[in-house]
Design a protein around this nucleic acid. Structure first.
Length: 589
DNA sequence: GCCGTTTTCGGCCCGACTGTTTTCAGTCG
């Protein structure tokens, strides 16, 4: 079973508990949901964690759920869950995937209309609603019947809960909407929050906060956004719309004197906020988007905060960079005033993964812009150096001597260009395939023309974990192989990464002075943030590259830097923050 | 069911909005 499937199973357990008796099982429900979140977000497969006896390293997995998971992996089923699910028709669960359907509503409808076929339950319910049979039920009405029909319709058309957006896509959409919001005469300040502000690799909803002394005015304007499918909700301080592209946008509005509290609340993450509020509660303080209350004081007066810094300060904490707000230790460090100083975009001194259009006759794709054009862009970014790392010339189409000739020719081209372009130093690299056997796709002689190589996997993605790990370690073992490119091979929303034993890889890189790439391409963001954090903890060095195949992609560096920040990386963890002399020294040793 | 710099027992974030009601249940973030 995949992590996603296991997470769904645990969420179904939580739903089953709330159908059975929400009061009685209140905290079990929360516990199962929390464990489901942790498992869904885990980069390591549950079966691999179990092999390492590390299931309880996941936050929210304690002795009981651990035992259940072990049973599941061993026998394929969990006896306790059979009891949990008894009396609950399995046709309840498909309905839970539809927005606005919770366990109570789904169960009630399934039971009332005896909808016992999980494969057809959604269609069956739609037909029942269309016949007007839901309106007469106690607690339902005509409006809720229409809402059910629409919710099913949107779900079937995949208008909602569809794939998560990549960062640039989400940013572009969010910018459109914030530009529109700023046109409201009542909006004094507009900010992007939620997962977009935390720079999570994919974004589900767009969250926006506005400061205004007339919240209703801003919300009125928001709900008139021209490119919307419909208004989902509209209240006094919050509102949600569905864009015509099927993406949900949530808006929250507070007066400027409480804007800091709102920024904090709406940036999340949920786990960060819950932990923060539990911590504050122990100090007798109650936190919300409105500010901070002390319920024990007789007047219970609410203290408001204009800025986030003041809000955190009020509970004796340092301001926490949004990228860290995932409840992975940042709260404890902020209390102890010991948060790391994270790397910033301006620390980057060069980009090492650049594909120019130089005709190197590669096995994979060539870049679209010339060496000169890419150097000009690098100068604009004030880089000291740029590493050209086209794919290796294809080995099936070239003999060794032909390959060497091609590299020699590129070398001469570099020299010629370098005479004119002195602002940015050229670093001579290649991106070389690690073949399934672990061998590199160029011969040792070719290395004489190179300062170093990035090695990457571009084929046979489905080798088992041991073979793949050994393949990569062997590929990295060559003296000139200094950087492991897009290390998990994942393509967001398209392809999972290959299975690797990260402990072994990190250990090898640390011992042998190899660096791992954080690839800034928005559909890769690879190494992923959670693995960056582990690499940093183990002292493994990283480089942040864009893997640009065109000049315009070179600006993607900011996404890679965000991944590094989400992985708690400091400037000293990232090698391409080094000045040229120090970097080239590392590369050549 | 999980968890611990007040705890291995006794806590567990805090709120908005909708539709159905006449004070609340359900869903969501």
């Amino acid at each position: 079973m995949t992590n996603k499937e296991i997470a769904e199973l645990l969420r179904n357990v939580a739903s089953a508990y709330s159908i059975k008796n929400e009061q009685k099982f209140y905290f079990q429900i929360i516990a199962y949901q929390k464990a489901a979140d942790a498992i869904e977000n885990s980069i390591t497969e549950i079966k691999d964690l179990n092999k390492e006896n590390a299931l309880q390293s996941l936050p929210g997995v304690g002795p009981s759920i651990k035992a259940h998971l072990e049973e599941l992996l061993k026998t394929g089923t969990i006896a306790h869950f059979k009891w949990v699910f008894e009396d609950i028709p399995s046709s309840v669960f498909p309905l839970l995937k539809i927005p606005s359907f919770g366990p109570k509503k789904a169960y009630r409808l399934v039971k009332t209309f005896k909808l016992n076929n999980p494969k057809t339950v959604i269609k069956d319910l739609e037909n029942i609603a269309k016949k007007g049979k839901i309106t007469p039920l106690a607690g339902f009405g005509e409006k809720s019947e229409q809402d059910i029909i629409r919710a099913i319709n949107e779900y079937e058309l995949e208008k909602t809960k569809s794939v998560r957006m990549t960062l640039p896509f989400a940013l572009e959409l969010a910018d459109k909407i914030t530009d529109y919001l700023k046109k409201s005469e009542f909006a004094m300040q507009v900010e992007l929050l939620g997962s977009l502000r935390r720079m999570v690799s994919t974004v589900g909803d767009i969250d926006i906060a506005a400061a205004s002394s007339n919240p209703k005015g801003v919300i009125e304007h928001f709900t008139k956004y021209p490119y919307k499918e419909r208004v989902i909700e509209k209240g006094d301080t919050t509102s949600s719309i569905l864009t015509s592209g099927g993406h949900q946008v949530d808006l929250m509005v507070q007066p400027p004197e409480a804007f800091g509290s709102l920024l904090q609340h709406f940036t999340g993450s949920k786990a960060h906020n819950i932990h923060l509020r539990e911590y504050a509660l122990k100090k007798g303080l109650s936190l919300s988007e409105y500010g901070i209350k002390n319920p024990k004081l007789p007047n219970k007066k609410l203290q408001q905060y204009k800025t986030e810094e003041l809000f955190y300060k009020a509970i004796d904490m340092d301001w926490v960079p949004p990228e860290l707000r995932e409840d992975s230790g940042e709260i404890e460090l902020a209390i102890g005033h010991d948060l790391p100083k994270l790397i910033e975009l301006s620390d980057i001194k060069g980009d090492l993964h650049i594909h120019s259009n130089y005709p190197i006759e590669p096995s994979h794709d060539l870049g679209r812009n010339s060496i000169t054009e890419m150097l000009d862009k690098a100068k604009e970014f004030k880089y000291e150096y740029l590493g050209f790392s086209e794919h290796n010339p294809s080995i099936s189409k070239h003999s060794e001597s032909e390959l060497l000739k091609i590299l020699l020719k590129r070398d001469k081209m570099f020299e010629k260009i370098a005479k004119d372009k002195k602002d940015v130093r050229i670093i001579k690299l290649l991106e070389v395939d690690i073949l399934p056997t672990g061998k590199l796709a160029i011969s040792d002689k070719a290395f004489d023309f190179l300062d170093g190589v990035i090695v990457s996997v571009h084929s046979s993605f489905t080798l088992d974990i041991n073979k793949m790990t050994n393949r990569i370690i062997q590929g990295l073992s060559n003296k000139k192989a200094k950087i492991l490119g897009h290390p998990t091979g994942r393509l967001i929303n398209e392809r999972q990464g290959y299975n690797l034993d990260w402990n072994k890889i990190f250990e090898f890189c640390f011992k042998n002075n190899k660096a791992i790439e954080i690839n800034s391409c928005p559909s890769r963001l690879d190494l992923p943030d959670t693995l960056v954090k582990k690499a940093v903890e183990k002292g493994v060095k990283l480089v942040i590259n864009t893997d640009s195949h065109a000049v315009y992609q070179m600006k993607n560096m900011k996404y890679g830097v965000s991944v590094a920040r989400r992985g708690w990386a400091k400037k000293s963890d990232i090698l391409n923050t080094l000045p040229y002399n120090k970097f080239i020294k590392w590369l050549r040793t």
